[in-house]
């Protein structure tokens, strides 16, 4: 066509390309503008401020790596990292295991499946504020948690969130309760993706349902397990809402987390530079951990 028509058609067609590009850019422009300001621009600013002292009132002063050095020697920051590590080590395996059990149960033809699925999922959809307020009330010395323990014969009146020894475990419990079913949904989608003929072959070989689950379903779900562990870890590293609402990092820094410290340094004490540096360290931590997990869990399923 183009050859036959010669140069006469060429110019309008180039014009049409320009018009197409312009239209495309007009379609993405509103989104791209917000992204350039609040993501790309913000990332650059975060890096820049992490090398400065800035208190919002006077101009930022360049201080090089001082904020990073300060963070690595800050007893509170190191304590927050320890808390978050402990928290992650308990919460991620628990929510993964419970999510897997939930998905395995829903995959069987038991009665009331639809009811179970929605009932288990409700803790995930209520806001963090509401679930935290509810658990603050349940965890009171006169609350239902102690009442339930007394009912089964454990006579205690613990101030769960007010006691240094039990505050972090209480928040762990709260969050496992609130997130397990999200993991269940990911597992459920993955279980349903396992090709049916594999089970049929296993049936012919006489493998029972339990063996099928451990020898077929579980190995094929490795990518889903990776996803759940990764998302769980990222979520745990960012633990904030429950700490901010229920304990403010206390008692005696027992529930201090990295993100709470970022808020405290940046928005209570107005050390914007120091807060930025801690944020960059948090990002680096999440990045490294996700690379390691990718290695360890080797995402590809082998059929």
């Amino acid at each position: 066509m183009a050859v036959l028509a010669g140069g006469a058609v060429r110019r309008p067609s180039r014009f049409r390309y320009w018009r197409q590009w312009l239209t495309a850019y007009l379609f993405i422009a509103p989104w791209l503008i917000f992204l350039l300001i609040f993501v790309a621009g913000a990332i650059v600013l975060a890096l820049y401020f992490s090398f400065t002292d800035y208190d919002l009132l006077s101009d930022p002063v360049f201080v090089g790596l001082k904020n990073y050095q300060k963070a690595l020697q800050d007893e509170s920051f190191l304590h927050a990292i320890r808390n978050v590590a402990t928290y992650t080590a308990v919460v991620v395996p628990s929510q993964t295991f419970i999510g897997l059990v939930m998905a395995a149960i829903l995959d069987r033809k038991i009665p009331f499946r639809r009811f179970f699925r929605i009932a288990w999922y409700l803790p995930c959809v209520a806001s963090s504020v509401v679930t935290t307020l509810i658990f603050m009330w349940l965890f009171l010395p006169d609350g239902f948690i102690n009442a339930a323990l007394n009912f089964v014969g454990i006579g205690v009146r613990i101030n769960w969130l007010g006691d240094e020894a039990t505050a972090l475990p209480s928040i762990m419990f709260m969050n496992i309760w609130a997130t397990a079913a999200t993991m269940m949904l990911i597992f459920l989608a993955a279980i349903q993706d396992v090709p049916g003929p594999i089970y049929e072959a296993a049936n012919l070989d006489g493998a029972g349902p339990v063996r099928q689950f451990f020898q077929i379903t579980l190995p094929l779900m490795r990518p889903a397990i990776f996803l759940v562990v990764l998302l769980g870890t990222i979520g745990c590293f960012q633990l904030y809402d429950q700490v901010k609402i229920a304990t403010n990092g206390g008692p005696n820094e027992a529930t201090l987390t990295v993100t709470y410290l970022i808020w405290r340094q940046g928005f209570r004490d107005l050390n914007m530079g120091y807060a930025s540096a801690m944020g960059v360290i948090l990002f680096a931590g999440i990045f490294v951990i996700s690379l390691i997990q990718r290695r360890v869990l080797d995402v590809r399923p082998d059929y």
Partner: peptide
């Protein structure tokens, strides 16, 4: 990959 809290300040 970037956690939301990292961008609070900027």
């Amino acid at each position: 990959m970037i956690p939301g809290q990292v961008l609070w300040v900027p």
